[in-house]
Design a protein around this nucleic acid. Structure first.
Length: 341
RNA sequence: GCAGAGGUGGCGGAGUGGUCAAACGCAUUGGACUGUAAAUCCAACUCCUUCGGGAUACACAGGUUCAAAUCCUGUCCUCUGCA
């Protein structure tokens, strides 16, 4: 896929957070029909670090990946690790400062720094550093989040253009994240202000499901309605197959979620043979089931192995089980997304 | 045969008079996971139940005691050492 066409057709990007989709080689990843992946600024910043990353020629060279790489800005990690108190650190007007619990090293991410890191990673599609928080926010908190996100996005764009020459010079795309929690007017305002700055893509940020697990479609619609129609729309973290179908109906074309690969590792597979399309391969009923996971699937796993084999390998904790499950789930998603376009 | 150690839930293994239907681990059976600190986490796991409880249970059979997996006696079995 050409970068300029990114988001014209539906695309699902698995998360290769640390430079690999867990349990898959780059070759296996390609064979699932994956054309774009998401890597993470914060994770790669901590290891291998910017210097080594540059020395090694960036993540694509490291992975031997010739597809598209989108780098998440680290905004979500700031939320999930710092806001929730799991890591020591704080979020301030200028960005986030935190201490790695592994090494004790102190890191600071500012909007400018986030862009610099993403450039060092060798990303194709950058994401502006955003102030991501939980969905259930007071209006005041949501306002702060929106204000910071817009301000930081502005700084990201300035850095991207003034230091690197922007899209024209680099051939890379810069997207932004729309915040605003569950306040429709704040979502709208955030979308409008970001549109005014101008980005190549607009991402729905924050949490995509409410506490009941339902997709927040109304909030998501606010981004579609208030951003330029010719730019790609990326629903970050979406989602279950049904959620992807729903989000695509209102205009989202780009998706990523950890569910597809994490569920695979945890034995929740997708199959069109099953009502509700969820097949829990660990369940006893599959122990001697010689059918493929999905009779309509063309993935390596379904072509060569039975439910019972994947069941058994996952049961005993063999890495091969994880690999086979991940290959299948990922292929299922790629087929799903292809069917939408 | 003699001496010593020991027999606890599907398995391993705590517990040595009451708060024990019995820690903990494994296995088993369900479930969760949504811009990945996740090959992780949660729950159930003797039987019955109107979910308040109830009935059997720590090799087996007796006994002591208000009370026993825990103390005593016998039986059976296992392991180690010596013959």
């Amino acid at each position: 896929m050409e970068l300029k066409d990114f988001g014209k057709k539906h695309v699902f990007m698995p998360d290769a957070t640390r430079g690999a989709v867990r349990f898959l080689t780059t070759q296996q990843l390609k064979e699932t029909g994956t054309t774009a992946i998401v890597t993470n600024t914060l994770h790669l910043l901590m290891s291998p670090g910017v210097e080594r990353m540059e020395k090694l020629g960036g993540i694509k060279k490291m992975m031997n990946w010739d597809g598209i790489v989108l780098t998440d800005s680290g905004g979500f990690q700031v939320f999930s690790l710092i806001h929730s108190g799991k890591w020591k650190g704080k979020v301030h007007e200028d960005g986030a400062t935190f201490k790695s619990p592994l090494t004790g090293d102190v890191y600071e991410i500012t909007p400018e720094r986030s862009i610099d890191i993403q450039m060092s990673i060798g990303s194709d599609i950058l994401v502006a550093f955003d102030d991501c928080r939980k969905t259930d926010l007071t209006r005041k908190e949501a306002e702060i989040s929106v204000d910071r996100t817009v301000k930081w996005a502005q700084r990201c764009k300035k850095q991207f253009e003034s230091v690197y020459g922007g899209t024209k010079a680099t051939g890379k795309l810069l997207s932004c994240v729309v915040q605003g929690a569950n306040y429709p007017d704040l979502r709208k305002r955030c979308a409008e202000e970001l549109s005014e700055i101008g980005f190549d893509g607009y991402n729905f940020g924050g949490f995509v499901v409410n506490d009941k697990g339902d997709l927040v479609l109304d909030e998501m619609a606010a981004v579609i309605e208030n951003t330029p129609s010719d730019k790609f729309k990326y629903a970050m973290g979406v989602g279950k197959p049904e959620d992807i179908r729903r989000a695509s109906k209102i205009g989202y074309k780009v998706f990523d979620t950890v569910l597809v690969t994490r569920n695979a590792r945890h034995g929740t597979l997708y199959s069109s043979d099953i009502e509700g399309e969820v097949l829990r391969i660990g369940n006893a009923e599959y122990a001697e089931d010689l059918k493929p996971i999905d009779s309509r699937c063309d993935c390596y796993t379904c072509q060569t192995h039975s439910r019972s084999y994947v069941h058994q390998m996952l049961k005993v904790g063999e890495a091969t089980g994880m690999t086979l499950a991940t290959i299948h789930n990922l292929r299922y998603y790629q087929n799903l997304v292809q069917g939408l376009s």
